[in-house]
């Protein structure tokens, strides 16, 4: 049953991605990207990644859509479909890379295989069985995120701060040139 839902959700994701590529209306494309994010959030829940699922639903389907709609309201709503892109080059690169990647998957451990290297590494034991005695947090993802990899999360916050400063600088410069000097 889980496999059937998995296959169905993945197929829907492909349909959404192809529709996003083909749509000329940017508004519709942005809304479909939001649907795509929501579908992937459903799939994350199926893979037991509940924390990733609600982050994706909030950030991917929420904030990212709001940012894109804001951009559309400040710029243009439709794609002109001029000769800016390189469809033939794109198709060639995509087919070549895709074939190479599919060839590489035959060496990958199968889906859900408990003997996969990722599950047999000692770090799995440490996180799953030893983290509760050290930090007393039942949610393992939280204890790894905030305790084991706390510096990593700190770096992530720095990235967000940098991005915020960059966005403010880019947009405030545009406003200065438009309006009268103050």
């Amino acid at each position: 049953m889980t496999i059937a839902i998995d296959v169905f959700l993945m197929a829907l994701l492909v349909v959404a991605a192809i529709a996003v590529i083909r749509l000329r209306s940017l508004f519709a494309a942005v809304m479909l990207t939001s649907v795509y994010s929501l579908l992937s959030a459903c799939w994350f829940t199926l893979q037991d990644a509940v924390d990733v699922a609600f982050t994706e639903a909030a950030v991917g389907a929420g904030i990212s859509t709001v940012l894109m709609l804001g951009t559309l309201s400040l710029t243009q709503r439709n794609e002109k479909g001029g000769r800016g892109g390189h469809p033939i080059l794109g198709l060639a690169v995509v087919l070549l890379t895709g074939t190479a990647l599919v060839y590489a998957t035959f060496d990958m451990p199968h889906y859900g295989d408990p003997a996969a290297p990722i599950h047999t590494h000692p770090i799995y034991e440490e996180y799953v069985h030893a983290s509760y005695d050290k930090f007393h947090i039942p949610n393992i993802v939280t204890s790894v995120l905030a305790s084991y990899r706390g510096y990593d999360t700190f770096g992530e916050v720095t990235v967000i701060l940098t991005a915020g400063i960059a966005v403010l600088l880019l947009l405030s410069r545009a406003r200065e040139e438009e309006g009268p000097p103050s």
Binding site: V7, A11, A17, A29, T97, G98, L101
Partner: peptide, 27 residues
Amino acid sequence: VGLYNYWIVIVLMMAGLYTVIAKGNLV
């Protein structure tokens, strides 16, 4: 069944890469 997810992920990744190369619109 074991590799289906990887293949779909590759299709989605290539869809993204194709959009970046083949479309002239910045959004």
